[in-house]
């Protein structure tokens, strides 16, 4: 069974694979410039209210909850039992 959640719901230390990014021009453009597209694996490395740090393609990015909530993640198998 697979569990899909918005990226901002990832807990610290959890990881997953992006299955959809917003198709809206600006956000999509910005994300794909950074290599953040469908299929990219992501790990949440640090979380605080409103903003979180994600590790994507060996780079850590700070991103806001409001931007991350539109990105849908499929949780990694290992995380599902948490």
């Amino acid at each position: 069974m697979t569990i899909n959640i918005p990226m901002n719901n990832l807990k610290e230390g959890q990881s997953g694979v992006i299955i959809s990014v917003p198709s809206d021009g600006l956000v999509y453009g910005r994300l794909s410039d950074l290599g953040i597209v469908k299929g990219t694996s992501v790990k949440c490395v640090r979380k605080k209210r409103g903003t979180a740090a994600y590790s994507l393609r060996q780079t850590v990015f700070a991103m806001r909850e409001s931007d991350a909530e539109n990105i849908i993640i499929q949780l990694s198998e290992a995380e599902e039992n948490d």
Partner: peptide, 11 residues
Amino acid sequence: SESKPFIMELP
């Protein structure tokens, strides 16, 4: 004004 997503690299 039009808001862009906030994404900042933490090197």
